[in-house]
């Protein structure tokens, strides 16, 4: 799949933003006044920024409102609703903290659940797609959630929680990559099933339908070199988890904490790039590519 910057940005930052909101919602921490304002500002910048980024890849962003209508079947619609509802709830909750020094716990918990739901619905947009075997797996939502609350924990200063979450997330990510590498082949979709010509023999793409390019090829066919991918995976793991964990273990204050955040975010961006770039859509088979 084409690793569109807008979508990488969106999934990374909205994940972190909602992760932070989650921790704020359950009162860990539960600051008030200016401190609360700063926490909420950071969470909203990331969550809203991510959401806005996601509209960049819409053909008709001015109609985005229509996307709330199909919650009964569409994960994307559900995500939109959860995202906005969570932001609204948490805005009220946050206002309580910032302006009234009040902690409306039930609202906070509602918001926290909303944040998790938002991240979950986001992940299900990908995990539901049978057309992308790498994504259609329990590890997709699990990782999205883990990364979200892990990153949220980091941002919210829940260092003790962040460390184990990072370790688990890193391990699960490694597993997901490893397992994901074989899923396209395991999916049973091949050039032979795509064309129905397998009964004759081995199928090979001869001429594409056009010598130029098209939307499908730009969107779905992105070949990442094997060596390149392995290197990037290591970089992502190191930046996303190893370095932050070491830094956090060294002491999470100030510069080190900031470095941990920067490293983690960079790692997640790399990991998300891989999430898209390495995902192979079955339509590539029609072009003899994956």
């Amino acid at each position: 799949m084409h690793p569109a910057p807008s979508v990488i940005f969106f999934t990374t930052f909205s994940g972190l933003g909602y992760g932070l909101l989650f921790w704020l919602g359950i009162g860990m921490p539960a600051p008030t006044g200016w401190v609360a304002f700063v926490f909420f500002a950071i969470a909203y910048i990331m969550a809203v920024g991510g959401l806005l980024a996601s509209t960049f890849h819409l053909g008709r962003p001015e109609r985005a409102i229509k996307a709330f209508s199909q919650w009964r079947s569409s994960w994307l619609s559900r995500e939109g609703i959860c995202a906005v509802a969570t932001l609204l709830i948490m805005a009220i909750y946050g206002a309580g903290l910032v302006f009234f020094g009040a902690e409306w716990t039930i609202l906070g918990w509602l918001g926290a659940i909303g944040a998790l739901l938002t991240v979950f619905t986001t992940s299900m947009i990908y995990a539901q797609l049978k057309t992308v075997p790498r994504w259609k797996h329990w590890t997709t939502p699990t990782l999205f959630l883990l990364l979200s609350i892990g990153g949220g924990a980091l941002f919210s200063g829940n260092v003790k929680i962040a460390i184990p979450l990072f370790v688990i997330a890193g391990a699960l990510q490694a597993f997901a990559w490893f397992h994901g590498d074989g899923r396209f082949n395991a999916s049973g979709t091949t050039m032979e099933t795509a064309t129905g010509l397998g009964h004759i023999g081995k199928v090979r793409a001869f001429e594409p339908p056009h010598t130029g390019t098209n939307y499908l090829m730009k969107e779905f066919i992105h070949v990442v070199g094997r060596r390149h991918a392995t290197q990037l995976r290591i970089v992502a793991l190191v930046l996303g988890f190893v370095i932050p964990v070491i830094l956090l273990l060294l002491g999470a204050k100030h510069v080190l904490g900031l470095l941990a955040v920067v490293s983690h975010v960079a790692g997640i961006l790399a990991l998300r790039w891989l999430f898209f770039a390495q995902a192979e859509h079955v339509v590539g088979l029609y072009y003899g590519k994956r």
Partner: peptide
């Protein structure tokens, strides 16, 4: 008239039967 051009339907189609029109921004 309702399409926002999010592209998700094209992602969901195994056959590459949907193309987002770059100019109109709709599927």
């Amino acid at each position: 008239k309702d399409c926002i051009g999010c592209g998700l339907c094209a992602w969901a189609c195994p056959y590459g039967a949907r193309e987002l029109d770059e100019k109109a921004g709709v599927m």
